[in-house]
Amino acid sequence: MSLVEYSACIREGDVVIVFLGHDSMMAVRVQKGAQTQTRYGAIRHSSDLIGRRFGSKVTCSKGGWVYVLHPTPELWTLNLPHRTQILYTTDIATITLMLDLKPGAVVCESGTGSGSLSHAILRTIAPTGHLHTVEFHAERAQKAREEFERHHVAHLVTVRNQDVCRHGFGVVGVANAVFLDIPSPWEAIHHAKSAIRRQGGRLCSFSPCIEQVQRTCEILVSAGFTELSTLEVLLRTHDVRSVTLPLPDFGSEDGHTHTGTHTPPPPSSATATIKTATPPREMAAHTGYLTFATKPRE
């Protein structure tokens, strides 16, 4: 198992996603002899997980069953330990496309945070690209390093514990793309610029507040970035379901409703059933503004 390559079967040391049901999952590190408690009972790693094919149904000790899934960056995003606010898949997908990421790309990121985006970047730039990720918070940087090791992607990433606004990304002229998710992105723009190759590249800054976007755009323009584009993407999940609608009873022309005993079946209980999809009662209305820009060739 690796977060950038599929395997068929579960091995010791793997991180697997235990799928308990709709919107209920957990990430589990597989260890010989270990047990994991779920609401359906315990999963014994040695007999229930190791050697099993990813995607298998596993019966827990109480008789309930779960599926064990191969981790992907997207499943990891839903199950990772939060050390910060994280980026979710909708934004990540947009960032990945708009930064032109692909295998072989060199990317700079700050901050690493909980590593949600980092894993998605690594998946896309593997096997020949590299991620330089900078995290201000020492403990978080260390935890990220450990996760990258566990997910077998450590060779693709360099984690630096420093302040990107002061000390930049630690590399110059190598990046195809830079991503910023920091409180004052405008303070890191010149570092971002110098990190990008002289042949040009792409930049993305993620900010929750419009004032941050405004300051960032101003600096981006003055730093010579072009093709500025600020956007928002919202994903809406629809609940597919059958809905039964009663049909109105307008009565017969002679003034009686059809509910009388002599006209079965009573149409006042007549219904029509439709298949439909309904939006959620509440959904994310905002995560942040995504500002993209191009550094033209020097």
């Binding site: 799928f19 976007v213 755009c217 956007l231 928002e232 993407v233 919202l234 809406r236 999940t237």
Partner: peptide, 21 residues
Amino acid sequence: AINLRLTDSWLRHYQVLPNRT
């Protein structure tokens, strides 16, 4: 198949200019 999701998305661009955002 599990984790089925039916989604659509909404995309909006911004004009970011001094006092005209």
